[in-house]
Amino acid sequence: MNITELTELWQNQQVHLQQSMEMNKVLAKEVQTMKLQQLFSSMRPIKIFTLVVGLLWVVFVDSILVATYGIASPYFFWSALLQSTITKVAIGVYLYQLILLYQTDVSHAVSAVQQRIAHLTLSTLWVTRILFLQLPLWTTFWWTESFINGISPLAKSLLFSTVILFAAVALGLFINIRIKNREKPWFRWIFRGREWDPLVRAKELLGEL
C-alpha cells in the first residue's frame, strides 16, 4: 500500500461508517443524565481539600508565631517561619494547578490544551520537591537555648549532625526528584504505590508538542 491508497482506504471508510453505524439514541441520551466527568474534574476535589488543609495549617502556624513572638525560642521561631513559608509556596503551586484546571477547555486547540495538562501533571512533582525541603526544620523546632547550652558536646554534635543529614537529604531530594531519575531504586522506594505513568507520559508529550 502506498500513501494515496491509504488515504483512499481511510476516506472510503467514512462513507461505509456513516451507512453502517447505528447510533443508539436511548444510550446517547443516557450520557446526558450521567454525572458529567469533565476530563479533569476528578482532580479538583482532592486539590481543593489539600489547599484548604494547607491554608488551615498555615493559619495555625502563623497564629502561634504571632502569639509567641518575642517569647518563643529563636529555634522554634525560625523553624516554624520557614516551614510556614515552604507550605505557602506549595499552596501557591496548588493554586496554580487549580487555575489551570478551571481554565482548561477541551474545545480549545489540541496543542494548547495538551500543553496545559502536561504542565499541570508535571507540577505535582514540584509540590513533592518543595515539601521535602521542610525535612530539617522538623529536627530543630523543639530546641530551646537552655536545652542546647545544657547538653554535652557529644550530644550537641549528634544533634547538629542530624540536622545536617536531614538538610542534605532534603536538598538532595529537591534536586534529584525528576522524571529522568524515575528508574532509580530510591525514587521507586519513595514513590512506591503512586501512579507515575501519567507524569512520564506528560513529559514525553511536552517533548512532542
Binding site: 443508539n24 444510550l27 466527568q37 477541551v106 490544551v113 495538551q114
Partner: peptide, 23 residues
Amino acid sequence: ISAYRKEKRRETSSTDAMHILHP
C-alpha cells in the same frame, strides 16, 4: 490524548451505555 491520565476507566457508568456506536 488526555485519556492516559485516567488511572481507572469507567467505573460509574452503566455497561450498556458503553456501546453507543455499532460499526
